[in-house]
């Protein structure tokens, strides 16, 4: 784990209102040839941000976005659908995002995001619509209270899988957690006769 724990996040939003933004949009497949996880911020939404010649598109909502002050991405429903590529949350995090808010977020992306210091926040449709309607507004996300608050004081609740939340808040390491269960894993293998070299394969 090489990211900072998240407790509260107060930041401005970048809004991409489209539904079904898939991980091929977030990181086009041609950037998946990397063998490391670093530096993928450059590839983030590449074809939305840059033209054929690699120049920033005038139409891109990322123009003028300061990653230090705009750390919350607001997106249309079913964000992160498609491929399981973890490059998607790596790229979002490397660019500077620390949370993605939507009305619903695709399962594999959500699972990957939670392991990479990027908080997926699914809010009710009304709050989602307000977020979509006002790009750049300041939003506070409180992982301890599980609330997202707008700058006018309106507050919405969201859910995060409790273990993933603890990992983010307290820096609990999921692999370490799994390893502490090694005696149970070994006992399972004996019970199922699937210990190393015990079964025909």
């Amino acid at each position: 784990m090489n990211f900072d724990p998240i407790r509260t996040l107060r930041s401005r939003t970048v809004v991409l209102p489209q539904a079904n933004i898939d991980t091929d949009q977030i990181v086009p497949a041609r950037f998946l040839t990397t063998t490391t996880r670093a530096g993928l911020g450059k590839a983030l939404f590449y074809d939305w941000r840059y033209d054929e010649d690699g120049r920033a598109k005038n139409s891109s909502v990322f123009n003028g976005v300061n990653p230090a002050t705009h750390r919350i991405l607001v997106a249309g429903p079913n964000f992160g659908c498609g491929s399981s590529r973890e490059h998607a949350p790596w790229a979002l995090h490397d660019f500077g995002f620390r949370a993605v808010a939507s009305s619903d977020i695709a399962d594999i992306f959500k699972s990957n995001a939670l392991k990479n210091g990027l908080l997926p926040v699914a809010v009710d449709p009304a709050t989602h619509q307000r977020l979509l309607n006002s790009p750049g507004r300041e939003v506070t996300i409180d992982l301890e209270r599980l609330t997202l608050s707008l700058d006018d004081g309106a507050t919405a609740a969201f859910a995060v899988e409790p273990f993933a939340r603890r990992c983010l808040l307290d820096g609990v390491d999921p692999l370490g957690h799994l390893q502490r269960h090694m005696p149970a894993i070994e006992a399972y293998e004996v019970r199922q006769s699937t210990a190393p070299d015990s079964e025909p394969r």
Binding site: R37, E86, I108, S111, L175, H177, L178
Partner: peptide
């Protein structure tokens, strides 16, 4: 699964 989870399986043969 994602790549982090693939690491979990490589290391423990299990997933959370």
């Amino acid at each position: 699964i994602g790549t982090t989870e693939a690491g979990h399986v490589l290391a423990t043969q299990c997933l959370l």
